[in-house]
Every structure is written in C-alpha cells, then in structure tokens.
C-alpha cells in the first residue's frame, strides 16, 4: 500500500508524516508520532478514550483518517498542560480522585475542555450529556462530574 504525505499542526507545532490511506488518525498519533496519550478502547467511536480536538471540535480520532488531517489543527492530551503547569481540569481530576485506572482520563479531559471552551458554566445535566460519549467503568462518573464542575468554577474565577 502506498503512503500519503500529510502536513498538519499538532498541539501548535507543524508536523509532517506519512500514513496509509486506511490508517486512522489515532493510529498515526500512537504508532507514528509517539503520542500515546490518546487510547483505543473500542476503535468504533463508542468509548471516547481517543478524543482529540480537530479544528476546534472534539472528535474520536479512531474515526478520522490520518490522511484527513492535511492542513488541519489537532490538539491532543499531550498539549493540555503547559510544561509543568497543569490545566485546571487536570488538577481538579487529581484533587477529586476522578480517575481510578486512568485509561479513560485523557479522553475525558479533552472532552471536558471542549465543553468548557463553549460553555464555561455548564449544569450537571449538560456535563453528563456532553460527556456521554466517554465511557468510564471505574468511577461511576460521580467524581468526574464534580471535578469538571470545580474546574469550571475555578476557570470562571468563582470563589470555591
């Protein structure tokens, strides 16, 4: 199978790679670029563990072809913290014990960030429905929802 040359932007950096026509963006990130923070839980868009931003919208990178990324902007979990400065969502997930095994955590963080980008003050119901495409089998979601609420409040500057 011949490969396709792709030029794209990942976490703000120019990136070029070669990929097969049938290769998913998730496989490109993990296998070609070493960005293994995005996880494959199902490969069919049902679990959200591979959630990444594509041109400002949250997507399952398992359901995007690597070739489609030409000229686009991609953000992954690896770009969420700035150096040692964690994003408030990352900090709140740690403080609230919002992860147990942690395999779903990168996807949840990316999806939650996408929510707070468009809705800085979501209700519990809005959080729950927005995150319905991210499966967690460990926590029962309680602490995840609380961490998102708390991070949102902090980002809005509300007193805790």
């Amino acid at each position: 199978m011949t490969t396709i040359a792709v030029s794209t932007t990942i976490n703000g950096d120019d990136v070029e790679y070669l990929c097969h026509a049938d290769e998913s963006l998730l496989d490109v990130l993990r296998n070609r670029l070493g960005l293994m923070g995005s996880k494959e839980g199902c490969g069919t868009g049902d679990c959200g563990a591979c959630s990444t931003m594509l041109d400002g919208r949250i997507v399952c990178s398992c359901l995007v072809l690597g070739a489609e990324a030409e000229g686009r902007e991609i953000e992954t979990i690896e770009g969420m913290a700035h150096g040692h400065d964690l994003h408030p969502l990352q900090t709140k997930f740690l403080e609230h014990a919002a992860l147990q095994c942690g395999i779903c955590t990168p996807g949840f963080l990316m999806a939650a960030k996408a929510l707070l980008d468009v809705n800085p003050d979501p209700t519990e119901e809005e959080i729950r429905f927005w995150l319905a495409g991210n499966l967690c089998r460990c926590t029962g979601y309680d602490k995840i929802v609380r961490a998102v609420q708390d991070a949102a409040a902090e980002m809005r500057g509300d007193a805790a």
């Binding site: 993990r30 960005l35 293994m36 923070g37 995005s38 996880k39 494959e40 992954t76 979990i77 690896e78 969420m80 913290a81 964690l86 990352q90 997930f93 740690l94 403080e95 014990a97 992860l99 942690g102 395999i103 955590t105 990168p106 963080l109």
Partner: peptide
C-alpha cells in the same frame, strides 16, 4: 486524601498501558 503518586502521568497521557 492526598494526590496519588501515579496521578500526573495519568492526566498528562504519559502513563503506559498494555498497548503503549
């Protein structure tokens, strides 16, 4: 209720699972 020792790796995508 301290932060877990493996926490930062898990919120930054650095923790290595079976397929990683």
């Amino acid at each position: 209720r301290p932060v877990r020792p493996d926490g930062v790796d898990k919120v930054t995508g650095r923790a290595r699972y079976g397929a990683d």
